[in-house]
Design a protein around this nucleic acid. Structure first.
Lengths: 341, 341
DNA sequence: TCCTCGTGCACAAACGATTGTGCTAGACTA
DNA sequence: TAGTCTAGCACAATCGTTTGTGCACGAGGA
């Protein structure tokens, strides 16, 4: 069914070594006559020869594979990152294996090992949880690991993420500029760098106007809609003086929206909302969300670049191993100024 | 760095064949003493031995890879399909390589060949365009191809798609039940089976109430937002008597929504909309869309199942090679009854 | 005529696994 | 004691490439 190099060689009346070199353009270097080389090529064409990537991988110790592990592929954010990684990788002749860790460290570890066994040349991981030990080990064992989006403090792995601190400060300033002083924060997963940096950016922006950061205004344990909903509900009763929410993810914001509806608080009249993370059709939402958009494509592209660079073993360690990509504020209609009562 | 079987064998003081058989549980069958077998296992553990999948693939002619080609991974619909394929495949010990054809046949073909060269054991394709020749050829060459979502009429490839005709009829009936008689259809890519079957389902539902299908009410050339927007705009001026739109995709519907806003037609008061395809947060949209939801997870799961079954070469041709998964109507708030003027 | 040299290839060893078969030494039988 | 059997392993081929090296043959110079 599939034709092998030796069949090509036989048909051309040469040895496999000559066939291989002819087809790989090494003819000159190995003193193979033009006549022979073209005879081989013709034979290859006629037989529809396609070299086995598996065999080459084994021989060359190069699989041309990149592994991508995300927590939830159905989440547009991760889907977009995967897409842009896939496109970048493909441009360099690589293919990507994507794996979905279902937000569980346990799965993440299993999948990572599976990919390691498949000898992917690099891994791009949007990690789950707050542990990076397993990732460091893999990196140490020889498969370069690049962290995307969810990175860790004090972690020497290559990483690319958004300018969370700056972005969060921008978001907060949108609120404070409208007079908001009591701002509820619907946070994501505590302990992750994005979350911590956003908190710190938020506090920073508050400080600028002389407001102290109040930890009791922060709630949430995940980037999910459920966490956003629960936290918002709780905060709305605990702190009735809250005039605005800063949600750390789109799902968090959606949860907040639902909570506001259930509590019959009108957005943006009774309650302003700003969210980190944009989402498709955010402008067509019942309340068009003002958001801090991350440049997903750029994140994916940079991650792919770092990964591939590491894969080919560019020893130039001078290369930046850490990238923070800029965010952009998208002003829509979920913020109003506080009413003076 | 990475340890090979022969290193394990050496450490255990046995030959590679014994080492291989011990680790693969073939000890008994090949009369290897328990003592030796456990000695090998211990050595493997100590060295952290992980067999090279590349080598096994070559020897066993089984890569454990499934290829998935979608037109646009950032589209939640395809992202979800990919996810559910990935999960199903993973459960069977397979990994999936995803490739994004950017809605272009040219890319699709290139990617498919790349995957073929990598010797994926099966392909799941959401094809672009209306040509299936290249897919049939691949299938004939030995890599089983399963079509998902976008299938073709008169195509003997395995395929899984939604019950487009039934779903479209349901959607149309939602409108006719409210008295709508002049319904604009924002179609997707003409010539694809989903599109044609939806059209036919639509016509069928009209016929039930004695309304003739009017082709001039149908516009559009793609499943994109742009197509939806342009078609809606045009139809709104060409046919001011239109009281409702049936959009063949979520992006189509979003385009219609925007067109309605620009033409200052209120939805649902002045204009009803129903869409095929659900999307996350559809209920939180400015007008909560009534939709015919496809069971994306089931589609992906079935596709993966067909693909893997074909991969292991189950010769039982009795198996259904074609699946139509049911759709479900999600009633929200984008439809109102026609006003009697 | 003999030696040298370059051209044009073929041979064979990898890569790291799996697997059919062959070999040896001890136990057992007669 | 000689012959048979079997447990317990090692050898070697194989999957399809790539690549270092060796060999033969003809041309050219002295």
């Amino acid at each position: 069914m599939v034709t092998t190099l030796s069949q090509v060689a036989e048909k051309a009346g040469v040895s496999v070594s000559v066939a291989s070199r002819s087809l790989n353009g090494h003819a000159k270097a190995y003193r193979i006559s033009d006549a022979t080389a073209s005879r081989v090529k013709e034979a290859a064409d006629q037989l529809g020869f396609r070299p086995s990537q598996t065999a080459r991988s084994l021989r060359l110790k190069k699989t041309g594979l990149v592994g991508v592990v995300v927590p939830d592929l159905s989440n547009p954010f991760f889907a977009s990152i995967s897409q842009s990684i896939a496109l970048s990788a493909e441009a360099e002749g690589y293919s990507v294996i994507v794996a979905d860790s279902r937000e569980q460290t346990e799965h993440e570890i299993r999948l990572l090992h599976q990919l390691e066994d498949r000898q992917v040349e690099a891994l791009v991981v949007c990690p789950v949880g707050t542990e990076s030990k397993h990732l460091q080990e893999i990196n140490k064992r020889g498969t370069p690991v690049v962290l995307a989006d969810r990175t860790f403090p004090n972690c020497n792995l290559a990483q690319v993420t958004s300018e969370h601190r700056v972005g969060a400060a921008k978001a907060t300033r949108l609120l404070t500029a409208q007079g908001h002083r009591v701002i509820g924060v619907l946070q994501g997963l505590p302990g992750t760098l994005p979350n911590e940096q956003r908190l710190s950016g938020h506090a920073e922006a508050l400080e600028e106007i002389g407001v102290a950061f109040d930890p009791s205004l922060t709630m949430g344990n995940n980037f999910t809609e459920a966490s956003g909903f629960d936290s918002a509900k709780k905060l709305l009763v605990d702190r009735p003086d809250i005039t605005a929410f800063f949600a750390f993810s789109t799902p968090n914001a959606m949860g907040a929206l639902r909570a506001a509806m259930e509590s019959s608080r009108l957005v943006p009249d009774d309650l302003s909302i700003v969210a980190f993370d944009d989402c498709p059709y955010a402008d067509l939402m019942s309340v068009p969300l003002t958001t801090v958009r991350q440049d997903v494509d750029r994140i994916g592209q940079l991650a792919a670049e770092l990964a591939l660079r590491a894969a080919v073993g560019s020893t130039s360690r001078k290369r930046k191993r850490r990238h923070d990509v800029k965010t952009r504020v998208i002003v829509r209609n979920s913020i109003s100024s506080v009413r003076h009562s």
